[in-house]
Amino acid sequence: MYLRLTDEQKMVQETIRKFVENELIPLENEVLRNEREGRPSLSPAKLEELQRKAKESGFWGINTPSEYGGADLGQMMQAIVSMEVAKTFVPFTFGGSADNILYYGNEEQKEKYLIPTINGEKKSCFAMTEPDAGSDTQNIKTTAVKDRDEWVINGEKTFITGGNEADFVMVIAVTDKERHQQTGREGVTCFIVDRDMGWKSEYIDTMGEWGPAALIFDNVRVPEENILGELHGGYNLGLEWIGFARWIVGARAIGAAERLLQMAIDYSKERKTFGRPIGDRQAIQWQIADSAIEIEAAKWIVLNAAFTLDQGEDNRHIASMAKLYGSNMGNRVVDRVMQIHGGMGYTRELPIERWYREARLWRIYDGTDEIQRMIIARNLLKGHVKVGQFI
């Protein structure tokens, strides 16, 4: 085992860190102002400019296969990049990527959907969650009924990230009710559905800056060739999509927590009470120490999840751990940082309150805390994972 970054990984980390410091962090005040006035965080032109600069730096499609023009740097590098980019709340992602399950498309689908998405010409979203089927995916009600060479989709999806902006959706629908009722897993299919086929999106207002969508399907007709993967094979695609994103939540929490902790350290040196910096107070020191320890612990769980994927191994158990511990760690750190800043931390003069609202979402989306605990406990109780083994 070699528990250090390689020279290449250090170089990438430093390059990304400089990009964040020089290009993104200076935009934070503008982003806060835009969000508070109800405007988009970044204009399309500004986002395009940032992605162009990122592409010129060689970071286009971090994990996209080289055959599609990506950097194909692997999951460990993806974790490192995610941590660094999360040190700012400016909503930026490196372009040149696509949802992992889109790579299961046939050649025609790749030409029509995958490649334009990688090139930034189209935007996608994935829709599995419903009003009565969040983590309980077995309760999906959206149906797709065969009508000659088309499928007619009816139902509603909710809390869909990117659903308001997407040009097409990869939607999970029940295609065999009897099989689905009997197994809870089989009998559902993933369809690629263009917006102009008739589905509609409605904005869902939240306490944070995340604006998900409700998607409405009212007799939306989809051609047979728009089935992604196999007929009745959508459940596994859905789990793969969710599982891939799960540990990334932990990585983002680490990046944000590191930035917040540094803010707390800097403030504790400047702010004085009774003639001394508050950093001299044990109560403040313990909050800083606890935060640093928890960030480090979360980092190794996340890196293990990424490393496991790079080895071609199943990382679902450790991914649940990374998501659960990382997201809760992030919430604890932002709470301590706000406490250290006192009244100033609660004001909108500083961005801590924004991070505070955003962090609360980490414990809910891509599988709630309760679902992650259920997965972890089930794996241990059923013997899929042994206590004490390296995972």
Rank of each mutant, 00 (worst) to 15 (best):
Y2K: 14
L5Y: 10
D7E: 15
Q9D: 10
V12D: 07
E14A: 13
E14P: 04
F19D: 06
V20F: 10
N29M: 11
N34R: 12
E35T: 11
R36E: 15
R39Q: 10
P40A: 03
L42S: 03
L42D: 08
L42C: 09
S43A: 10
A45I: 13
E49S: 14
Q51P: 07
A54Y: 15
E56P: 02
F59V: 09
G61D: 09
S66Q: 14
G69M: 13
A71P: 10
L73Q: 06
Q75D: 14
Q78W: 08
V81S: 03
E84L: 05
V85D: 04
V85A: 05
V85G: 03
K87A: 02
V90G: 02
P91H: 12
F92K: 07
G96A: 05
G96K: 04
G96D: 10
A98C: 05
Y104T: 11
N106S: 06
E108V: 12
Q109L: 02
K112M: 08
E121T: 09
K122R: 10
K123M: 13
A127T: 02
M128F: 12
P131K: 10
P131C: 11
D132R: 11
D132G: 03
G134Q: 10
S135W: 09
D136C: 11
N139T: 06
N139L: 08
I140E: 01
A144Y: 00
V145F: 00
D147N: 06
I153W: 00
E156M: 05
T158Q: 15
G162Q: 15
G162N: 15
G163T: 08
N164S: 12
F168I: 05
M170A: 13
D176R: 05
D176V: 06
E178Y: 08
R179G: 09
H180Q: 04
E186Q: 13
C190R: 07
C190L: 05
F191R: 00
F191I: 02
I192A: 00
D194F: 01
G198H: 01
D205K: 15
D205N: 14
W210D: 14
W210V: 12
W210Q: 15
F217K: 00
V220N: 01
I227Q: 01
H232C: 09
H232K: 15
G233A: 07
G234A: 01
Y235R: 12
I242G: 06
G243Q: 10
A245S: 09
W247F: 02
V249D: 03
G250I: 02
G250E: 00
A253T: 11
A253W: 03
G255N: 08
L261V: 00
E270F: 13
K272E: 13
F274L: 11
Q285G: 02
A289C: 10
S291Y: 01
A292F: 03
W300V: 09
I301H: 04
V302M: 06
A306V: 02
F307E: 06
L309I: 11
D310R: 10
D310L: 08
G312V: 14
G312Y: 06
E313A: 13
D314G: 08
H317E: 12
S327V: 00
V333W: 00
D335W: 04
M338W: 08
H341Q: 07
M344T: 13
M344Y: 15
G345F: 00
E349S: 12
L350T: 14
R357C: 03
R363L: 09
T368K: 13
D369N: 14
Q372Y: 07
R373D: 05
R373G: 10
R373Y: 12
I376F: 04
L380Q: 09
L380S: 08
K382G: 03
F390H: 08
